[in-house]
């Protein structure tokens, strides 16, 4: 079946689910690892960063799609996509930071410290770049962004939960911190690889 050309709603959900599970950006592509290792110590910080990533990934995927289609391609400078995408993401994050600061101080203080981390989160740049590998429409790019964000959120929250439990147990000295976390991520990645091939796009 040609997924990209079946019904709009169906495509949307298929792309969403495939980006979340079968092509999980954190567990199958290992992107966004530095902020994941740094922040996944507790579930609530993981939740905060995860939510921020969902929001920014989704929006920047859509914005970058438009920039690519309507500016970079017509001007014949598609090879600049990497640097342009980074600038767009950085500016967008700054903008979101301002809006959050104004709208909800509480959210700003619980989430605000994560926002600058996001600018350098490669999962977000990765999403914008990977979406160009498929002939997506705007709506499909949006679904892909949302799915990637959800996938990253899901992965970091689960890792956070496991790490909270693991920290209560006694971990061998040399494995504490990033060591045991990488092992956990590896085992989880194995589990997620089990989804691969479920949906083909």
């Amino acid at each position: 079946m040609d997924v990209l050309h079946s019904g709009i709603i169906q495509t949307f959900f298929l792309i969403l689910i495939s980006a979340t599970f079968t092509d999980n950006i954190l567990l199958t592509r290992f992107l966004g690892m530095c902020s994941c290792l740094g922040v996944s110590k507790k579930v609530d910080t993981s939740l905060g960063l995860g939510l921020a990533v969902i929001f920014v990934t989704t929006c920047t995927a859509a914005i970058n799609f438009l920039v690519y289609e309507f500016l970079l391609i017509p001007l014949g400078i598609a090879y600049l996509k990497l640097i342009v995408f980074i600038i767009v993401i950085a500016a967008f994050v700054q903008f979101v930071e301002m809006v959050i600061e104004r709208v909800s101080i509480k959210l700003y203080f619980s989430l605000g410290i994560f926002l600058p981390l996001i600018t350098v989160n490669c999962a977000i740049l990765g999403t914008s770049l990977f979406m160009l590998n498929k002939p997506y429409s705007l709506l499909q790019a949006f679904a892909f962004g949302l799915g990637s964000g959800l996938g990253w959120f899901l992965a970091i929250t689960i890792i956070g939960g496991i790490r909270e439990k693991v920290n209560e147990a006694s971990v061998p000295r040399g494995l504490e911190g990033p060591g045991i976390t990488l092992i956990i991520i590896g085992i989880m990645a194995l589990a997620f690889v089990g989804f691969s091939g479920m949906i083909k796009i």
Partner: peptide, 17 residues
């Protein structure tokens, strides 16, 4: 074109911010 576009893009976003 590429230098001009990058400069314009950066300038525009900075102005917006």
């Amino acid at each position: 074109i590429s230098v001009g576009f990058l400069a314009a893009c950066g300038g525009f976003l900075a102005a917006v911010l």
